[in-house]
Computed example of a mutant assay.
Amino acid sequence: MYTTKGRKLKVEAAKPFDEVSASVEAAQSTFPMPKGRQTMVKAINEDIAVLRSSGELAKILTANGLKADAAEAGDPRLIK
């Protein structure tokens, strides 16, 4: 959506298609970190949990033109 801002384009979400699992379940993103840095992983996970539970993550998303419900992507999973 950001790259099309100000252009006369219509962006629509694709309808779910069972053959493409990423279209059925919400996408998730990651923060690449050095292997073995469990203290860093724990700190980032805790910070994200605070942002999510306080509603701040939803505010950040909507302020950038995204849907607030994207803050709740479910349990971690690998989408194939």
Score class of each variant (00 low, 15 high):
T30N: 05
A26F: 09
R7Y: 13
L57R: 02
G55K: 03
L9R: 08
G55E: 00
R77L: 03
V24D: 07
M33Y: 02
A71H: 01
T62Q: 09
R7N: 14
D69H: 07
A68T: 01
E56D: 15
E19G: 13
K35S: 08
G6D: 05
P76Q: 03
A26H: 06
S21C: 03
P76G: 07
P32N: 09
E46C: 04
K42H: 09
N45R: 08
A58E: 08
G55N: 02
K15R: 12
M33V: 14
A70P: 00
R7L: 15
V11F: 04
K5I: 10
P34M: 08
K15E: 14
A26Q: 14
T39D: 15
S53E: 14
E25C: 04
T3L: 15
D47C: 11
F31V: 14
P76M: 04
R52S: 07
G55D: 03
A49R: 07
E25T: 05
A49I: 05
K42N: 13
E46P: 00
V24E: 06
G74R: 01
K10E: 14
D18F: 02
K8Q: 10
L57Y: 07
D69Y: 01
I79N: 06
G6E: 08
A26K: 10
T3H: 12
K80Q: 13
P34L: 13
V11C: 12
G6A: 08
T4N: 11
S29Y: 04
T62F: 08
A49V: 05
D47H: 09
G74V: 05
V41T: 12
T3A: 15
A14F: 01
P34G: 10
F17M: 11
R37Y: 04
A49D: 15
D18R: 04
V24G: 09
A70I: 06
N45K: 12
A26W: 05
F31N: 04
T62C: 03
S54E: 13
A73H: 00
E72P: 00
K80I: 06
E19W: 04
A26D: 13
L61K: 00
P16A: 07
Y2D: 12
I79L: 12
D18E: 10
V50E: 09
S21N: 07
A27N: 13
I48E: 09
G65H: 05
L78H: 12
V41G: 00
L9P: 02
M40F: 02
G55I: 03
K8A: 12
Q28E: 12
N64D: 13
S53N: 15
M40W: 07
A22T: 05
S23T: 15
L78R: 12
I79K: 01
K67I: 02
A49G: 08
V50I: 13
L61W: 04
A70T: 02
